[in-house]
Simulated scan of single mutants.
Amino acid sequence: MISEPIDPKRQAIIDGATRMFLAHGYRNTSMEKIAQSAPVSKATLYNHFDSKSALLAAVIAERCTLLLQTMNHATIDSDDVASNLTQIATSAVDLIYAEDSLAIYRLIIAESPDFPELGRLFYQSGPQPVLAQLEAYFRRLDAEGRCNIADPVFAADVFFSMLKGDLHLRCLLTKAVRPSAEQKNRLIEQVIAFYMRGMIDA
Protein backbone atom coordinates (compact mmCIF):
# COMPACT_ATOMS: atom_id res chain seq x y z
CA MET A 1 0.00 0.00 0.00
CA ILE A 2 1.49 3.33 -1.12
CA SER A 3 1.19 6.12 1.43
CA GLU A 4 -0.09 9.49 0.30
CA PRO A 5 2.49 12.28 0.48
CA ILE A 6 2.32 14.34 3.65
CA ASP A 7 1.15 17.93 3.27
CA PRO A 8 3.63 19.91 5.42
CA LYS A 9 1.14 22.71 6.11
CA ARG A 10 -1.58 20.30 7.17
CA GLN A 11 0.85 18.44 9.42
CA ALA A 12 2.05 21.69 10.98
CA ILE A 13 -1.55 22.63 11.73
CA ILE A 14 -2.29 19.26 13.33
CA ASP A 15 0.90 19.48 15.41
CA GLY A 16 0.04 23.01 16.50
CA ALA A 17 -3.53 22.03 17.37
CA THR A 18 -2.28 19.07 19.41
CA ARG A 19 0.01 21.32 21.44
CA MET A 20 -2.74 23.87 22.05
CA PHE A 21 -5.45 21.36 22.94
CA LEU A 22 -3.21 19.60 25.45
CA ALA A 23 -1.91 22.82 26.96
CA HIS A 24 -5.17 24.77 27.17
CA GLY A 25 -8.07 22.34 26.65
CA TYR A 26 -10.66 22.40 23.89
CA ARG A 27 -12.83 25.30 25.02
CA ASN A 28 -9.88 27.62 25.68
CA THR A 29 -8.22 26.96 22.35
CA SER A 30 -9.25 29.20 19.46
CA MET A 31 -8.58 28.75 15.77
CA GLU A 32 -6.49 31.92 15.96
CA LYS A 33 -4.27 30.40 18.65
CA ILE A 34 -3.87 27.25 16.59
CA ALA A 35 -2.85 29.29 13.54
CA GLN A 36 -0.25 31.09 15.64
CA SER A 37 1.05 27.80 17.05
CA ALA A 38 1.40 26.12 13.63
CA PRO A 39 2.44 28.83 12.51
CA VAL A 40 0.24 29.51 9.46
CA SER A 41 -2.15 32.22 8.37
CA LYS A 42 -5.80 31.92 9.36
CA ALA A 43 -6.66 31.62 5.67
CA THR A 44 -4.34 28.60 5.34
CA LEU A 45 -5.81 27.09 8.50
CA TYR A 46 -9.38 27.36 7.21
CA ASN A 47 -8.37 26.01 3.81
CA HIS A 48 -7.45 22.77 5.57
CA PHE A 49 -9.95 22.66 8.43
CA ASP A 50 -13.26 24.49 8.57
CA SER A 51 -13.78 24.16 12.32
CA LYS A 52 -12.09 23.44 15.62
CA SER A 53 -14.00 20.18 15.93
CA ALA A 54 -12.69 19.03 12.53
CA LEU A 55 -9.19 19.75 13.77
CA LEU A 56 -9.72 17.71 16.92
CA ALA A 57 -10.97 14.82 14.79
CA ALA A 58 -7.80 15.04 12.69
CA VAL A 59 -5.62 15.06 15.82
CA ILE A 60 -7.32 11.90 17.11
CA ALA A 61 -7.24 10.17 13.72
CA GLU A 62 -3.51 10.83 13.41
CA ARG A 63 -2.91 9.13 16.76
CA CYS A 64 -4.53 5.98 15.35
CA THR A 65 -2.86 6.04 11.94
CA LEU A 66 0.11 3.84 12.85
CA LEU A 67 -2.14 1.28 14.55
CA LEU A 68 -4.40 1.10 11.49
CA GLN A 69 -1.38 0.74 9.19
CA THR A 70 0.00 -2.05 11.40
CA MET A 71 -3.35 -3.83 11.36
CA ASN A 72 -3.63 -3.57 7.59
CA HIS A 73 -0.09 -4.86 7.06
CA ALA A 74 -0.38 -7.70 9.55
CA THR A 75 -3.76 -9.04 8.52
CA ILE A 76 -2.97 -9.03 4.81
CA ASP A 77 0.61 -10.25 4.67
CA SER A 78 0.64 -13.15 7.14
CA ASP A 79 -1.35 -16.32 7.80
CA ASP A 80 -0.01 -16.59 11.36
CA VAL A 81 -2.93 -15.39 13.51
CA ALA A 82 -0.94 -15.21 16.75
CA SER A 83 1.82 -13.21 15.04
CA ASN A 84 -0.74 -10.86 13.48
CA LEU A 85 -2.46 -10.23 16.81
CA THR A 86 0.90 -9.68 18.50
CA GLN A 87 1.80 -7.00 15.96
CA ILE A 88 -1.59 -5.34 16.39
CA ALA A 89 -1.38 -5.54 20.18
CA THR A 90 2.12 -4.03 20.18
CA SER A 91 1.01 -1.06 18.11
CA ALA A 92 -2.16 -0.66 20.20
CA VAL A 93 -0.29 -0.73 23.52
CA ASP A 94 2.28 1.77 22.28
CA LEU A 95 -0.62 4.06 21.30
CA ILE A 96 -2.90 3.82 24.32
CA TYR A 97 -0.12 4.20 26.90
CA ALA A 98 1.65 7.09 25.15
CA GLU A 99 1.58 10.24 27.28
CA ASP A 100 -0.07 12.34 24.55
CA SER A 101 -2.75 9.70 24.03
CA LEU A 102 -3.54 9.59 27.75
CA ALA A 103 -3.66 13.39 27.82
CA ILE A 104 -6.07 13.52 24.86
CA TYR A 105 -8.27 10.88 26.51
CA ARG A 106 -8.42 12.97 29.70
CA LEU A 107 -9.21 16.05 27.62
CA ILE A 108 -12.15 14.38 25.88
CA ILE A 109 -13.61 13.09 29.15
CA ALA A 110 -13.25 16.48 30.82
CA GLU A 111 -14.74 18.49 27.95
CA SER A 112 -17.53 16.13 26.82
CA PRO A 113 -20.20 17.30 29.32
CA ASP A 114 -20.06 20.80 27.81
CA PHE A 115 -19.23 19.67 24.26
CA PRO A 116 -21.10 16.36 23.70
CA GLU A 117 -19.97 16.22 20.08
CA LEU A 118 -16.39 15.65 21.22
CA GLY A 119 -17.19 12.17 22.49
CA ARG A 120 -18.76 11.28 19.16
CA LEU A 121 -15.82 12.74 17.26
CA PHE A 122 -13.35 10.85 19.42
CA TYR A 123 -15.11 7.53 18.87
CA GLN A 124 -15.64 7.99 15.14
CA SER A 125 -12.08 9.19 14.53
CA GLY A 126 -10.25 6.63 16.68
CA PRO A 127 -11.80 3.55 18.29
CA GLN A 128 -14.51 2.94 15.68
CA PRO A 129 -12.27 2.44 12.60
CA VAL A 130 -9.79 0.41 14.66
CA LEU A 131 -12.54 -1.91 15.93
CA ALA A 132 -14.10 -2.16 12.47
CA GLN A 133 -10.81 -3.26 10.91
CA LEU A 134 -10.22 -5.96 13.52
CA GLU A 135 -13.85 -7.11 13.21
CA ALA A 136 -13.38 -7.47 9.44
CA TYR A 137 -10.24 -9.55 10.00
CA PHE A 138 -12.05 -11.86 12.40
CA ARG A 139 -14.93 -12.27 9.96
CA ARG A 140 -12.48 -13.28 7.26
CA LEU A 141 -10.81 -15.83 9.54
CA ASP A 142 -14.19 -17.31 10.40
CA ALA A 143 -15.37 -17.36 6.77
CA GLU A 144 -12.18 -19.12 5.67
CA GLY A 145 -12.63 -21.72 8.40
CA ARG A 146 -9.27 -20.89 9.96
CA CYS A 147 -10.80 -19.93 13.31
CA ASN A 148 -14.18 -20.29 14.93
CA ILE A 149 -15.27 -16.75 15.78
CA ALA A 150 -19.03 -16.64 16.21
CA ASP A 151 -19.20 -12.96 17.21
CA PRO A 152 -16.46 -10.84 15.57
CA VAL A 153 -17.79 -7.63 17.12
CA PHE A 154 -17.49 -9.02 20.64
CA ALA A 155 -14.13 -10.64 19.82
CA ALA A 156 -12.64 -7.32 18.68
CA ASP A 157 -13.99 -5.44 21.68
CA VAL A 158 -12.60 -8.01 24.13
CA PHE A 159 -9.18 -7.97 22.45
CA PHE A 160 -8.63 -4.24 22.94
CA SER A 161 -10.30 -4.23 26.35
CA MET A 162 -7.82 -6.82 27.63
CA LEU A 163 -4.91 -4.60 26.57
CA LYS A 164 -6.29 -1.72 28.63
CA GLY A 165 -7.89 -3.07 31.78
CA ASP A 166 -7.08 -1.66 35.21
CA LEU A 167 -3.60 -0.43 34.24
CA HIS A 168 -4.94 2.00 31.65
CA LEU A 169 -7.57 3.28 34.08
CA ARG A 170 -4.93 3.91 36.74
CA CYS A 171 -2.76 5.76 34.23
CA LEU A 172 -5.72 7.97 33.37
CA LEU A 173 -6.94 8.64 36.87
CA THR A 174 -3.76 8.88 38.88
CA LYS A 175 -1.13 9.53 36.23
CA ALA A 176 0.57 6.37 37.44
CA VAL A 177 3.95 5.60 35.98
CA ARG A 178 3.36 4.33 32.47
CA PRO A 179 4.43 0.73 31.80
CA SER A 180 8.02 0.08 30.77
CA ALA A 181 8.88 -1.68 27.52
CA GLU A 182 9.35 -4.90 29.50
CA GLN A 183 5.98 -4.53 31.21
CA LYS A 184 4.25 -3.84 27.91
CA ASN A 185 5.83 -6.90 26.32
CA ARG A 186 4.72 -9.05 29.25
CA LEU A 187 1.19 -7.67 29.01
CA ILE A 188 1.05 -8.43 25.29
CA GLU A 189 2.37 -11.98 25.75
CA GLN A 190 -0.17 -12.73 28.47
CA VAL A 191 -3.09 -11.25 26.55
CA ILE A 192 -2.25 -13.08 23.31
CA ALA A 193 -1.79 -16.44 25.08
CA PHE A 194 -5.06 -16.06 27.02
CA TYR A 195 -6.96 -14.70 24.03
CA MET A 196 -5.86 -17.42 21.64
CA ARG A 197 -7.07 -20.07 24.07
CA GLY A 198 -10.34 -18.38 24.94
CA MET A 199 -11.49 -16.79 21.70
CA ILE A 200 -9.63 -18.29 18.77
CA ASP A 201 -9.24 -21.93 19.79
CA ALA A 202 -12.66 -22.27 21.45
Rank of each mutant, 00 (worst) to 15 (best):
M196D: 03
A143H: 03
F115E: 11
I6W: 06
L173I: 11
R139G: 02
D15Y: 03
L121A: 01
I192K: 01
D100S: 13
C147M: 12
K184S: 11
S83P: 00
D7V: 10
V59I: 13
V177P: 10
Y26L: 08
C147F: 10
T44G: 04
Q11N: 09
V59P: 01
V191L: 04
V40L: 04
G145Y: 09
R178G: 02
A132F: 01
Y105F: 14
A82E: 13
L107R: 07
I188R: 09
L167W: 11
A110F: 02
Q183W: 09
L68S: 12
D100V: 12
N47Y: 12
H73K: 13
E135P: 09
R140A: 02
Q190N: 15
A35W: 00
S41I: 04
M31H: 07
A54P: 03
D100H: 12
E4Q: 10
V153K: 11
C171I: 05
N72Q: 12
A156C: 09
L173Y: 06
S83T: 14
I104G: 02
L173W: 11
I149H: 06
T44N: 05
A181M: 04
M20R: 15
A156I: 08
L67E: 01
R146Y: 02
P127W: 11
L107H: 09
S41F: 02
F154E: 13
A202R: 10
P39R: 03
I60S: 01
L56F: 15
C171K: 02
Q190W: 06
R63V: 08
L163M: 14
I104P: 00
S91T: 03
R197D: 15
E111G: 04
L55W: 09
F138N: 04
L22Q: 02
L67F: 06
D94W: 03
S3D: 10
R10C: 08
D142A: 13
R106Q: 06
T75W: 07
A57E: 13
I192L: 03
D157N: 12
D114Q: 14
I2F: 15
F160N: 05
L173V: 11
D79T: 11
E189R: 15
T86W: 03
I60L: 07
I108W: 09
T174Y: 11
F160V: 10
V158A: 13
D94M: 12
R170N: 15
A92D: 12
A92W: 08
R140P: 01
Y46K: 02
I188K: 04
S78C: 08
L85K: 03
N185R: 14
E144M: 07
I188Y: 03
N72F: 05
L66T: 12
K184D: 14
D77C: 12
E135R: 10
H48G: 03
N28L: 06
P113L: 15
L187V: 05
I76Y: 14
V191D: 08
A89E: 00
D100G: 10
A82G: 11
M31R: 07
L141V: 08
E182D: 14
D7Q: 11
L56M: 11
D79Y: 05
G165E: 10
S83A: 15
L169C: 08
K33V: 07
E99H: 13
D50E: 08
K175L: 15
H48Q: 07
V40T: 05
N84L: 06
N185W: 08
L172T: 07
E4N: 10
L55G: 05
S101W: 13
A38L: 04
N72L: 07
S78I: 04
L85D: 01
L85E: 01
T65G: 08
Q11V: 01
A12M: 13
S3M: 09
